[in-house]
C-alpha cells in the first residue's frame, strides 16, 4: 500500500462534470440559469412571469422541485418546453443530473434554459450544476437577515431577486439592510427587487436576462 496525498474536494468529479456542461451549453448557445431559493419563495411564479415577458426568446425549464410534476405542467401551459427531473429525494441538483435534464429537452437547443433547483438554501449552493449563471430568490416574508444565515448561496449567486415585494407592507423587511448584507458577501451581485404578482421591478430583470443571453452567445 502506498500513501497518496490528495487534498481534493470531495466533489471534484462534480466540478469536472459542471465544466463539461458549461462548455456544451456555450457551444450550443444556450444560457443555463440555476434558480435557487427556499421552498415557496416564488421560483415557479417568477419563471412563469419571465416566460410571458420574454416572447422573443426560446425558453426551456428543467423542473427539479421535489413535489410531483405540477410545476412542469404549469410551465408547458405557457408555451415553454419543460422537463421534469426526478431527484429521488436528493436535496440538491448536481452537474450529472443537470446534464441528463438538459439532454432531455426536446428539439433544438433553447436560448435560455432555467433549472428550478430543489427548494433549499443550503445544499444547492454547495454543488456546481454547470449553469452559466446562478440566480437566487429571497422572498420578503423570509426576512432580511437571510444573508447572515445562509452566506454561501449569496456568495455563489450572480443575481439576487428579492421577490414578493408587494408583501412589504405586512412584513418588517428592511430592503436596504438586506441589499447591503448581500453586497458585503458578494460585491458583484446584481440585485433585482421584484413582485411577480404586480410586475413591479420585473423590467430590469428582463433586460438583464436579455443582455446575458446575448452575451453568452457571443463570447
Amino acid at each position: 500500500m502506498k500513501l497518496l496525498k490528495l487534498d481534493a474536494c470531495v466533489t471534484a468529479s462534480n466540478d469536472r462534470d459542471a465544466d463539461a456542461l458549461r462548455a456544451k451549453t456555450k457551444a450550443c448557445g444556450t444560457l443555463l440559469i440555476n434558480v435557487m431559493s427556499s421552498p415557496g419563495a416564488g421560483k415557479t411564479t417568477l419563471l412563469s412571469a419571465l416566460i410571458r415577458a420574454l416572447p422573443q426568446l426560446d425558453i426551456a425549464v428543467m423542473e427539479a422541485d421535489i413535489e410531483s410534476d405540477v410545476d412542469a405542467k404549469a410551465i408547458e401551459a405557457l408555451g415553454a418546453r419543460a422537463v421534469q427531473v426526478h431527484t429521488s429525494g436528493m436535496c440538491h441538483m448536481d452537474a450529472g443530473m443537470t446534464t441528463a435534464a438538459f439532454d432531455a429537452i426536446d428539439g433544438p437547443p433553447p436560448d435560455l434554459a432555467f433549472l428550478e433547483n430543489v427548494g433549499n438554501l443550503i445544499c444547492p449552493a454547495e454543488f456546481d450544476t454547470g449553469a452559466g449563471k446562478n440566480l437566487m430568490i429571497l422572498s420578503v416574508p423570509e426576512g432580511d437577515d437571510k444573508p447572515l444565515k445562509y452566506p454561501l448561496m449569496f456568495r455563489e449567486s450572480d443575481a439576487l431577486v428579492i421577490s414578493k415585494l408587494d408583501a412589504r407592507p405586512y412584513f418588517d423587511f428592511d430592503l436596504d439592510a438586506c441589499m447591503a448584507r448581500a453586497r458585503k458577501l458578494n460585491p458583484a451581485v446584481r440585485i433585482f427587487p421584484v413582485s411577480a404578482k404586480t410586475g413591479e421591478g420585473m423590467e430590469a430583470l428582463v433586460q438583464w436576462l436579455l443582455a446575458e443571453t446575448a452575451a453568452w452567445k457571443e463570447a
Binding site: 470531495v10 471534484a12 429525494g89
Partner: peptide, 18 residues
Amino acid sequence: MHEMGIVLHLAKTLDETA
C-alpha cells in the same frame, strides 16, 4: 438526503483517482 449525495460524489472522485 445530503450525505448520500456527497458519498456518491466521493465514490466517483475516488474511482477517477484510481
